Amino acid sequence: MIISRLSLTNFRSHAHTTVEMGAGLVILTGENGAGKTNILEAISLLSPGRGLRGSALSDLIRREGDGGFAISAHIQSETSALTTEPITIGVGLPTELPQNRRIRINGVPTSANRLSEWLGILWLTPAMDRLLVEGASGRRRFLDRLTLTLFPAHARSYTRYEAAMRQRNRLLADEKGYDPLWLDGLELAMAEPAAAIIEARHRWMTELTEKIATQQSGPFARALLTLQHGLPEEAGLENEGFFENKADLTAYLQKIWQQSRARDATIGRSFYGPHRAEMIVTHHAKNMPASQTSTGEQKALLIGLILAQTALVTEKNGQPPILLLDEVAAHLDPSRREILFDRLRDIGGQVWMSGTESSLFEKAGNTAHYFHLTGQNIITR
């Protein structure tokens, strides 16, 4: 699926902005502050989660607006765009109370988790340049974004898991004590989606590792991936069959949470679980932790991961995800930029890229869609 029309109303710096485009590369240029990244952020909100900046909804409202915002996108199949009516996805924040995120597909209200059933969206931003050297939480979000584009149900599993875990944490913190039977029920409610989360992540890593192994070597380094699932170290976790038997995995999770109740009550949180997972990235050719490589090598590793993930999703789902690459060309030399553009065109689908200088995209080709932003105006080049 591609976005054929995008409209923003009172979103960030955009009062009323509409762009129309087709498949291929979509290039946004303009000075800093012109609103390029705001457009990419709006697209990222057409998927579950808080978008590429992780912003609060109140931060997305245009200051001079009426107190709400709206994002509307027409999406349609790239292969049958002339014969298929576009599907409309709307995401917004109303001006009236309660100001909760509202989502509609063809005018029908739905949940955020349903968005992943229509669009797979991946992104790289300058803020992610330190993803491989900072804390585990950022890599965990990246891991789940990649998993989500392959397994859309992953978002619902995580929502269910977090809701049950919050209830468990509150119950353990109750000074009046807790009912063990009630905790049994909450831990079962955690264990079932947690098992689905662990299985989906494991399947994703296995399949992506196989895809990386088949890709040609080049300027974007290959990554070696290892997952730590946030669980006690046990030999069973290394057994492939352990992840395939959900009943055993669910029972195992219930057991470790039952055994850790006293400690979790003391520390005020659940110590074990998929919310504590870690994705370890190694530079394959150098056999070196990614955190110890140069900034340029880390950027190349991330781009390589995105390219491999895109190829995997395309193979599994029959269509590539939408890619959002914010300022990615500015950090590449001319030869790497040209190779990147060639690979992105070969993938097909739709790739949105931003940059301050038009010269960065000279090799993007005459089939790309070019838009130049000047304040509130978008000028097609």
Rank of each mutant, 00 (worst) to 15 (best):
F243D: 03
R104K: 15
I2M: 11
N100D: 10
A127E: 15
L332Q: 05
V26R: 04
P289Q: 11
L132M: 13
N377H: 14
A42G: 11
D248I: 12
T125Q: 03
G22M: 05
S7I: 10
Y272I: 09
S260V: 06
L119S: 01
M128S: 05
Q298P: 07
A213F: 09
M205G: 01
R336V: 05
E207L: 15
V328K: 10
R276Y: 06
N32S: 06
W118N: 01
A191E: 03
A285Y: 02
A73L: 03
A164N: 08
A15Y: 06
R5S: 13
L143A: 14
Q350Y: 04
G241C: 07
L186Y: 14
L224K: 12
R160L: 13
A235G: 07
D66Q: 14
L225S: 08
L225M: 13
L52G: 07
F371K: 09
V108M: 08
L227N: 04
T147K: 03
R263Y: 11
I322E: 00
T17P: 06
Q376C: 03
F371D: 12
L150K: 02
G268M: 05
A368H: 04
D333L: 12
N10R: 13
I39W: 04
A23T: 09
G348I: 00
G230H: 03
G375S: 13
E187P: 07
P152T: 02
A136H: 11
G120A: 08
L60P: 05
A251F: 03
E162A: 14
L150V: 13
D66W: 10
G273C: 12
A277V: 05
L115G: 01
Q167N: 06
P86G: 11
M21F: 06
E210N: 14
V313L: 08
L6Q: 11
A311V: 00
A191N: 08
I87K: 09
G120R: 00
I339N: 04
A329G: 11
D326L: 03
N287H: 06
A368F: 08
V19I: 15
R12H: 10
G138K: 07
I197H: 01
L186I: 15
P152V: 01
R345I: 09
I339L: 12
L143I: 11
H283I: 00
G185Q: 02
D129L: 10
V19F: 10
A191I: 11
G90Y: 14
T209K: 10
E96V: 15
D179E: 09
H369V: 03
Q254L: 09
L225E: 07
T282M: 12
N366F: 05
T380N: 07
M288P: 05
M1F: 00
T125M: 01
E207N: 12
L344S: 04
S4M: 06
E338R: 15
G268C: 03
L302P: 00
K299C: 05
L143Y: 08
K36T: 13
A200N: 15
S137T: 08
A277F: 08
G241V: 05
G65L: 05
G236V: 03
H372M: 06
T214Q: 12
A285V: 09
P289H: 09
L93S: 14
E31S: 13
A194F: 06
N377A: 15
L28W: 15
G49A: 06
Y370G: 09
S116A: 14
L28P: 09
N245L: 02
D326Y: 02
M165R: 14
S335Q: 15
R345K: 15
E238A: 14
L344F: 02
T18R: 11
T250Q: 15
W118S: 01
R102T: 11
